[in-house]
Design a protein around this nucleic acid. Structure first.
Lengths: 214, 214
DNA sequence: GTCTATAGCTGGATAGAC
DNA sequence: GTCTATCCAGCTATAGAC
C-alpha cells in the first residue's frame, strides 16, 4: 500500500519542481527579451504548458516576479557568502566586489530586478527580500574587518561599487572598462576611510607608510 | 496681402508649439505614472487632443520618447553649462555634482530616461543624444581644471557620482542620505587622483603623504 | 492539474470624413 | 490637422470540461 504521507511528499515535490521549472523558464526568457518583456503566454510556451496552467502555481504575474526575485536574491546571497580564500581583509573586500560585479554583469536582468527596481507596480515581498538583507550584512562584516564601521562610510561604499557596476552594465556590457577599476577604487576608498593604525590625530604627519598590503 | 513666407512661419511656429505641448504633456504624465506607463491615449487626453492627432506630429511612440530624451538632454546640458560662481576648481567640481544630483532627484523619470536606458526597444537618435555628449565634455573640462586627465580617472569619476545619485534615487527618494556624501566623496576622489603638486609618482599608490587639500 | 475557449481590457496605429 | 470610428494585436485572468 502507498503511504499517504509519502504520496503527499511526492506531490509536494512534483509541485515544487513544476514551480521551479516555471521560474527557470521565466529567467530564460527575460535574459533574452528583457525584464519587462515577460508575458505569460511566452512563459507558458517555454515551460511546456499553457498560460492558464501558470495560474495553478502563481496567483498573478507579480507573484512570478516575486519568485524570480526570491531566487535571484538567494543565489546572490549564497554566492556572496561562499568563503574567500584570501589572507587579508583588504583582499577579501576586493574579491567580494569582483563577485558582485560578476554576478551583475553575467546577467543584467538579475541586476535590473534586484537592484534597479524598474518594474512598474512590483515590490518584492519581505520573504523574497530577506536574502538580500543577509548579503548586505555580509558586506558590512567585510567592511568591519577593514575597520570601516561608520554608517556614512558604508553608504559611500555601496555607492562606490554600485556605481562601478552600473556603469559597466549600462555602458560597456561584456567589457571590463569599469570592472578593471575595482582594485584602484577599493584602494581609494580604504585610503580615505580606514582609521590609521597608530595615531588618531593625523594633524600633519600622516605617517601611514607601512602596512600597505598591495 | 499676406506674405507667403510669413504664413509659412506662422504655421511652422504653431506646429512647433503644438509639438512642444505634446512633449510637455508627456513629461507631465511620466513624472506621475513612470516612464513605461506612458500611453498614447492618456498622452492625447492630457494634451487636449485625440490619440490619432498625435500621429500628425510624431511617427510612432518611440519618436515621442526620442523627443522627450532630446528635451531632457538639452535641459540637462544647459543647466550643467551655467556658470559656477566658485573661486577654485575643486568647489566647481563639487557644485557640478550637486547640480547633477539635483537634476536627477527632482525628476527620477529624467534620470531613468537619460541615464538608465530601461525602455525596451528605445535608442535615442544621434540628434537627441548630442547634448548629453556636450555635457560630458563639460565634466571632462572641470576634471581637467583639477588636474584629472587620465581616461581611467574620468571613468572612476563617472562611476563615483552615478553611484551616489543612483543610490539616492533608488533607495532614499526625497531624502539626502547619499547626496550629503558628495563633499566627502569628491575629497576622497581628488585625494586619490590629483597629482601632487611637488612629486610626480602616482604610479605606486599611496605614497601620497601630503598635499591633502581639505 | 491541465486543457480549450474566451472574456475583458488596453495598447499602438490606421481609414476616411470634414 | 483634427476628429470619429475602428482594426488588430497583445495582455492578464477566468470559466468550465476532462
Amino acid at each position: 500500500m502507498i503511504n499517504t504521507t509519502e504520496t503527499t511528499d511526492w506531490r509536494e515535490a512534483r509541485r515544487r519542481s513544476a514551480h521551479d521549472a516555471i521560474i527557470d523558464a521565466a529567467w530564460s526568457l527575460v535574459s533574452e527579451e528583457g525584464l519587462a518583456g515577460l508575458s505569460l503566454r511566452d512563459l507558458a510556451r517555454r515551460a511546456g504548458i499553457t498560460a492558464p496552467t501558470v495560474y495553478a502555481y502563481f496567483d498573478s504575474k507579480n507573484a512570478i516576479y516575486d519568485a524570480m526575485f526570491g531566487r535571484a536574491a538567494t543565489e546572490f546571497a549564497e554566492r556572496m557568502a561562499e568563503p574567500f580564500d584570501c589572507d587579508n581583509p583588504r583582499e577579501i573586500l576586493v574579491a567580494s566586489v569582483r563577485r558582485f560585479s560578476q554576478f551583475c554583469t553575467e546577467s543584467p536582468a538579475n541586476y535590473q530586478l534586484l537592484f534597479q527596481r524598474t518594474l512598474p507596480g512590483f515590490e518584492p515581498s519581505p520573504e523574497s527580500y530577506a536574502p538580500a538583507v543577509r548579503a548586505l550584512a555580509g558586506a558590512r562584516e567585510r567592511l568591519a574587518l577593514n575597520g570601516i564601521t561608520e554608517a556614512r562610510h558604508v553608504d559611500m561604499w555601496t555607492a562606490l561599487i554600485t556605481g562601478l557596476v552600473d556603469q559597466q552594465v549600462s555602458n560597456d556590457p561584456g567589457g571590463d572598462r569599469w570592472t578593471r577599476l575595482i582594485d584602484e577604487s577599493v584602494a581609494m576608498f580604504l585610503a580615505h576611510c580606514q582609521p590609521t593604525r597608530a595615531s588618531r590625530k593625523p594633524a600633519s604627519r600622516q605617517t601611514r607608510a607601512k602596512g600597505n598590503p598591495t
